[in-house]
């Protein structure tokens, strides 16, 4: 059950290591171990709020249940979200009490832990849906919509929504229901924007329900493959 921590550390992508460093400290094995313990339920949130129960120890989440993947997100981003859950700035009836019960150090350590987990290659069930809707979502991701006055998602979230850390989370491979729920919450004012810029609240307000379904389906369908090194020369 217990993965070999030293090995996990060896496997850290440069990406994750640098993201952690942004938090002010290079990840120490002790911090990762402490974060894993928090994920296991040893934090202030207790066993009932153990992270792994929904998000897994590998941070893969549960697509069917709409629990987002945490692996491969930056520690910076995860930490900010936990802080926002804890303060209620990001309202969520499940996450709010969990995050609030953790100490600041526990929030930090568990963020570092999950950031250190490599994203899993998506396997098994593929999202299903209307090809036209998927195509529309892909267009929104890569081009945006002149009609809505919305820029391409990938301007900030990277190609196919693979994330641009530390501040722009990975969307690729996240559950469509999770993504759509966030966009609807922003659109309806249930999830406050990110002051002072309010990027997502501003953008979500311009999307139709169709756009939201399309773009969520698109990102959910992006295959999360380990990043391939390549020069990508155009012909």
């Amino acid at each position: 059950m217990r993965p070999a921590l030293p090995l996990a550390l060896l496997l850290l992508a440069g990406t994750a290591a640098a993201a952690v460093e942004l938090l002010g400290n290079p990840p120490s094995p002790r911090q990762v171990a402490s974060g894993r313990a928090v994920a296991a339920g040893a934090g202030g949130q207790g066993q009932q709020g153990a992270c792994f129960a929904c998000h897994g120890f590998d941070g893969a989440g549960q697509a069917a249940a709409g629990f987002p993947a945490l692996a491969g997100q930056s520690a910076e981003y995860l930490h900010e979200q936990l802080e926002r859950y804890a303060s209620g700035a990001r309202p969520n009836p499940i996450m709010q009490p969990i995050a609030a019960a953790m100490t600041p150090d526990q929030r930090r350590d568990v963020s570092v832990y999950y950031a250190a987990q490599p994203p899993q290659a998506s396997a098994g069930a593929r999202p299903q849906g209307d090809p036209a809707l998927l195509q529309h979502g892909g267009n929104l991701s890569a081009i945006g919509s002149a009609e809505r006055g919305v820029q391409a998602c990938q301007n900030c979230h990277g190609p196919g929504g693979i994330g641009l850390w530390p501040n722009y989370p990975r969307l690729a491979g996240q559950p469509a229901d999770y993504l759509a729920a966030q966009l609807r919450a922003w659109k309806q004012g249930e999830r406050p924007g990110d002051e002072p810029y309010n990027f997502m609240a501003n953008i979500a307000a311009r999307l139709t329900e169709d756009d939201i379904r399309a773009v969520s389906l698109y990102f959910a369908s992006v295959r999360t493959v380990p990043r391939q090194a390549g020069t990508g020369v155009l012909p």
Binding site: R126, P127, L134, G138, S141, A142, Q154, G158, P159, G160, I162, A172, S221, V222, R223, G230, T231, G232, V233, L234
Partner: peptide, 13 residues
């Protein structure tokens, strides 16, 4: 181009 390729690749669900 790396990014574009990635985008194209993800267009084959």
């Amino acid at each position: 181009a790396e990014a574009l390729r990635e985008h194209a690749q993800h267009h084959a669900p």
